[in-house]
Simulated assay, not measured.
Amino acid sequence: MELENPMTGLELTAVLPSLRTERGRRYHDLVLQWKSVFGQIDVPLSIVTEDAGGIQMQDPDTLYVEDSQIIDRLQARQEKAVFGHRTESVRASLFLVQNDTVAGRAARINSQSLQKLWKQAFLIQTKAVMEQMTGCLPEG
Rank of each mutant, 00 (worst) to 15 (best):
L94D: 03
L74H: 04
K35L: 09
V43D: 05
L137T: 05
S18W: 03
G135S: 11
S68W: 08
G24Y: 05
D72H: 13
M7V: 13
L74N: 03
V31Y: 09
M57Q: 13
R25H: 02
R86Q: 14
D29E: 13
T49N: 08
I47H: 02
E131D: 15
Q33M: 12
I124D: 03
V15R: 08
E11D: 05
L12N: 03
F83Q: 09
V15K: 03
Q132E: 13
P17H: 05
I109W: 05
D100W: 07
M7R: 14
I124F: 06
L114D: 04
C136S: 15
E22F: 10
A128K: 08
L96D: 07
N99Y: 06
D100G: 08
V43A: 06
A52V: 02
T8E: 15
V48H: 04
E50K: 09
I71C: 00
M1V: 13
E139H: 11
E79D: 11
E79M: 12
Q33C: 08
I109Y: 08
E79P: 05
F122T: 06
R91G: 10
S89G: 13
Q75E: 15
D100S: 13
D29W: 08
L137P: 00
G54Y: 06
L30C: 04
N5L: 10
V90L: 09
L96M: 05
A76K: 08
L30I: 06
S18Q: 04
D51M: 06
R105G: 01
Q115N: 12
T62Q: 04
F38W: 03
H85G: 08
D42V: 10
V65M: 10
R91L: 14
N5C: 11
A52S: 15
S68P: 09
L96N: 04
L137F: 10
Q78P: 06
G9F: 07
E2T: 13
E50L: 14
L74M: 05
K116C: 07
N5M: 14
L19E: 09
R25D: 11
L63W: 00
A14E: 01
K35W: 06
L10F: 10
P60W: 01
T62E: 06
Q120F: 01
Q69K: 12
G84E: 07
D29V: 08
V48W: 00
F95W: 02
W34G: 03
L3I: 14
T8C: 05
E66K: 00
T21P: 07
V43S: 03
G54V: 01
F38P: 03
G39P: 02
M57N: 11
S93Q: 15
D42P: 07
E79N: 11
E4G: 12
Q58L: 14
D59N: 13
R73L: 10
S68N: 12
V90D: 01
R23G: 01
R23L: 14
H85C: 01
P60T: 09
T62K: 00
